[in-house]
Amino acid sequence: MKFASEFRDPTLAKSLIAAISAQADRLGARRERPVHIMEICGGHTHAIFRYGLDKLVHEGIEFIHGPGCPVCVLPMSRVDECIAIAERPEVIFTTFGDAMRVPGTRGSLLQAKARGADIRMVYSPLDALELARRNPGREVVFFGLGFETTTPSTALSIQQAAREDLRNFSVFCNHITVPEPIRALLGDPDMMLDGFIGPGHVSMVIGTHPYDFIPRDYGKPIVVAGFEPTDLLQSVLMVLTQIAEGRAEVENQYARVVPEHGNPASLAAIADVYERRPSFEWRGLGEIDASGLRIRETYAAFDAERRFGVGYGAGRAPQPEPEGCACGAVMTGRIKPTACPQFGRGCTPEMPLGALMVSSEGACAAYWQYGGARGLAAE
């Protein structure tokens, strides 16, 4: 398969693994612990386990799984607000499929649908726009969720609704941004991170310069990476090389897709439609300043928060996790999923207790699917 097989070449992978081992051996002679490299994106977490890279790389390297899944970091209170909107009889509530099973304090959207709420899975906000055109007597709400990757498509849909004056369409905006939680993690004195593998899809939109603060302020290297096995192996080698040479820079391994300054059309749509929230609650991380987006006053007619009186109070206390759930500790890299007391017991893909087991990019789902963790959980 052209343009994929090239990045799965076993000969190239073996040479990269050998180079990583040699570099790790050199570093190991002057280190007391493994090199901790955090992959920020949940897609990278799944790729690492899908291809067994965690087992192939040198034992002196440890992957730390970051909060790189927007579904995983969605606070339970926002799920509750989704359900409150969806249960209104005039509403058709639309959402991406991976958000359907995320638990809130009142259950999930899927459970609300089973109770009678009109909740529909869509593949794009354009599907929600079409539902609004076909159902002029109903209020169609799209659950705007995701990092910078999905933010432009929601913005463009709001712009299209404004052009059509489609007043029965609105967006419940929960879009969040990647750089701010990285800063929060780096500000935690208990986090022992040596470098980062940066998100490829997010960077395709925002470019590489939003990460400049990582080497400048914290002296840590970051390499924006693709999602194939040789992409990730090369990125690990690039991080190790920076550490060995005493450098800390932003490097772009995924230059075939990620432009230095991002996508101008996407960035223009984002700037037109959204503004920063003072802060936003992240599941497992609490409130993070300026990490969330809200719809500007110009497009207030399409803001579900204003339309349905759903408020978001900055500085409010985060909802506690369910008893025994360690999603927060897993998302911040403090523990591995298998160290959670509920993993594979009270929390499984069939009956998830935490969001990390639900999402297709969640660390717990990766361990369950690829990590041989079912046997571990049963022990």
Rank of each mutant, 00 (worst) to 15 (best):
P210A: 07
L126G: 11
T151S: 15
T208C: 15
F143R: 00
S203T: 02
Y123S: 07
H209G: 10
A162C: 01
F169P: 02
L131K: 09
T150H: 09
N135L: 07
R163V: 10
P152L: 11
A155W: 13
D190G: 11
P152H: 12
R120P: 05
T208H: 12
L193D: 07
A128N: 07
A161E: 04
F213M: 06
G137K: 06
R216C: 00
R120G: 08
M121P: 01
I214C: 06
I176E: 01
F196L: 03
R133K: 15
L186H: 00
G187F: 01
G198T: 00
R167F: 07
P152D: 09
G187M: 09
L156I: 09
G187P: 01
P199W: 09
V141N: 03
L166F: 08
V205R: 15
I197M: 15
M191Y: 04
H201D: 08
R167S: 11
Y211W: 14
M192Q: 11
N135S: 13
E130C: 01
D127C: 01
R133G: 06
Q159P: 01
S157W: 08
N174M: 13
V140Y: 12
R120C: 03
V178E: 05
D194H: 03
A132L: 07
I176D: 02
Y123E: 04
D217I: 02
M204P: 00
N174S: 14
F142G: 02
R134K: 15
R134P: 03
I214L: 08
A128Y: 04
R163K: 15
R216W: 02
T150Q: 10
S124D: 05
K220D: 05
R163A: 14
F196C: 01
V140T: 11
T149W: 06
E130M: 08
H201G: 04
M121F: 10
L126W: 13
G144V: 05
I176H: 02
G198P: 04
G144N: 05
E130V: 02
F169H: 04
G198R: 04
M204G: 13
G146M: 11
I176K: 09
E180A: 15
R216V: 10
D190K: 13
A155E: 11
V141I: 15
G207R: 09
F172V: 01
R167C: 05
G146L: 09
N168Y: 05
D165V: 01
A161F: 09
R120M: 06
S153M: 13
L145A: 03
V140F: 12
H175L: 12
I119R: 10
R183W: 07
T149F: 06
E139R: 11
A132T: 06
L131I: 10
V171M: 06
V171C: 09
E130I: 02
Q159R: 14
K220Q: 03
